[in-house]
């Protein structure tokens, strides 16, 4: 073991590509990490199991379209209906993207290379956005292809499908920024998973709470804003403003929709990015 072989050293005089290439390589490397590719088998179980769970409703929807000629699952409501699965994916996989580099102090190996901290964080966010987007958009696309193949009566819901795919991207950005920010503040993997899931549960649980407090205090119309505390309903509200889809709140609830919710969304993404930038400025100085 550990013998040093004498084969002579060869110098490298081939091309040295730029920082854009390095950033793309890091994005791809992190994306592989999210799905456990190139890692031990146990790292693949969680992401692939959740991916399969996301595909099941799409398969059932296609079957119903084929057999009963009925649309049971609207494209625009898919993300909201499946939100628990998406949240679990976010919680379980966000730490794999950012936590090891912080916890095991791999970051200096990156920063001693041409990439900057900004490019590093961009690549990490991009990889998580792509992963979440695939998680939501692949079942949507499967359903749409199914609808075309089944040949439902009436025109296909192409507009709704395209809108829901675009909103899947927006949702992926919002969730990734917060998932990664939370996971980077708690570099221990278990803690990272817990912190992301707790924040999601709090944001969901606070909806009925805030709603009823406002409602009972007489602010009946303002109470609807409580729905937007949950990121999935916030994105859904932006979707219904942009694409005119019906709101998918539970129990037929409705919420405000319009430029205001879009503004809240943009501000939230900004805050999340600022938190990430702050976290990494500190980590880089170590």
């Amino acid at each position: 073991m550990s013998e040093i072989y004498d084969i002579g050293y060869r110098h490298y005089d081939g091309p040295r590509l730029g920082r854009g290439y390095a950033t793309r390589a890091l994005t791809l490397h992190s994306l592989r990490g999210v799905f456990g590719l190139g890692r031990p088998a146990r790292s693949k179980i969680m992401p692939f199991a959740l991916f399969v769970i996301m595909l099941l409703p799409a398969v059932v929807a296609i079957a119903t379209m084929a057999l009963a000629q009925q649309r049971i699952l609207p494209y625009s409501g898919f993300a909201v209906i499946m939100q628990a699965v998406v949240a679990i994916f976010l919680a379980s996989q966000s730490p794999t993207v950012v936590a090891p580099d912080l916890r095991y102090r791999v970051l200096p190996l990156y920063l001693s290379r041409p990439v900057s901290v900004g490019e590093y964080v961009t690549a990490k966010v991009a990889s998580m956005v792509i992963a979440l987007f695939l998680l939501v958009a692949v079942p949507l696309t499967l359903m749409y292809v199914g609808e075309l193949v089944v040949d439902m009566p009436g025109p296909p819901a192409t507009g709704e499908y395209v809108g829901s795919v675009l909103m899947a991207l927006v949702l992926a950005v919002l969730l990734s920024v917060y998932g990664l920010a939370l996971a980077s503040f708690t570099p221990r993997r278990g803690l990272g998973v817990a912190s992301v899931i707790v924040v999601y549960l709090l944001s969901s649980a606070s909806v009925p709470l805030v709603f009823s407090v406002l409602y009972e205090s007489g602010y009946r119309s303002e109470a609807d804003w409580a729905w937007l505390l949950n990121p999935f309903w916030l994105v859904d509200s932006v979707q219904s403003w942009l694409f005119g889809t019906p709101p998918h709140a539970i129990d037929g609830g409705s919420y405000p929709s319009g430029p205001a919710s879009a503004l809240i969304l943009v501000v939230l993404i900004g805050i999340g990015l600022a938190a990430l930038a702050l976290r990494y400025r500190k980590a880089a100085a170590r």
């Binding site: 091309p15 920082r19 390095a22 390589a25 890091l26 190996l109 990156y110 990439v115």
Partner: peptide, 13 residues
Amino acid sequence: VHLAKMSGLPRTA
């Protein structure tokens, strides 16, 4: 391999 790419080396190199 990954860190070599981070230094700008193409995949095969």
